[in-house]
Structures are given as structure tokens and as C-alpha cells.
Amino acid sequence: MATEAHEAAPAWHATGMPQLDITTWANQIFWLAVALVVIFLVLWRVALPRIGAVLAERRGTITNDLAAAEELKQKALAAEKAYNDALAAARAEAGRIVAKAKADIQGDLNAAIAKADAEIAAKTAESEKALAEIRAGAEQAVSAVALDTADAVVSALGGQADPAAVKAAVAAALKG
């Protein structure tokens, strides 16, 4: 056998299963126990409570955030509803104001029309009265002219006019 090869790789090799070499068991079991105790203490006292707390905190945060989001959504819905209500109320108010304004205007209009009608009636009555006076004045003037004309006609014919008879005759003629 070449010694060079043996120096590069050891000539010693395991025979059979090293697992069944009971002289190493005590060592393995002892260090296993140490490792398990250390891992257990680290996990039990430090790591697991910490991770558990972080997970719980995260769950809490998510739950709170969801609750807050739900609350904000409700608020948004409430705000929208309030807005719509306000809009509807404003519309109703505007309608009411318009109706009232219309009614007011109608009332004013009616009053003005009534007043105008009354004025027109008064003016009409006045005019009729003036017209009647004018007509009466005209009739009087006609009778005066008729009297004078009758007098003149009677005088021209050489008669002596009896004023009373002439007046009666003219009145009769005017009536006729």
C-alpha cells in the first residue's frame, strides 16, 4: 500500500454501524440532554412568550384596525345620510319658500288688480257723471236756444210772444 495515499486520506474507517457502538451512547445522551434543556429554557422563558405576545399584539392591532375601519365606514354612511337628509330638507325649504313667494306675489297682484279695478270703476263713474252733466248742460242749452229761437221767430212774425206759452210749447217739442 502506498503511504502517500494513506496520508492524504486516513486508513482508518468505520466498521459496521457507528450507531450501535454503545461506548459513545453516554456521551450522546448527555449532550442531547444538555441541548434539549438549553433549547427548552430558551424557548419556554424567552422565545415563545415573546413570539406569542407579538402574534397576539398583531391580532389585536388587526382586530382594532378592522373595528376602526368599520366604525369609520359607519360614520361615512351616517355622514352621507345626514348630507342627503340636509339636501332633502333644503330642497323642501326651497320649495316652501318658492310657494310662499308665489303666494305673496299672487296676493300682491290680486290686491293691485283689485285696486286698479276700483280706480277704473271710480274713473268710469266720474266720467259717466261728467258725461251726464255735459248731456244735461247740452239739453238745457238746446232748450235755451229753442226758446230764444222761438222768441225770435215769433217776434219776426210780428207777434207778441207770451213767454210762458213759448216755454211750454218748446218743452213739449223737445219732449216729442
Binding site: 456521551n27 449532550w31 442531547l32
Partner: peptide
């Protein structure tokens, strides 16, 4: 002659 308290490759990898 590995004793139970010896530091072995088991110890190191554990």
C-alpha cells in the same frame, strides 16, 4: 474511550 463529558462532534453540532 469517549467519556460522557467529552466534547465530541455530537456536542459541537448540537
Amino acid at each position: 474511550n469517549i467519556h460522557w463529558y467529552d466534547i465530541t462532534n455530537v456536542t459541537v453540532w448540537m
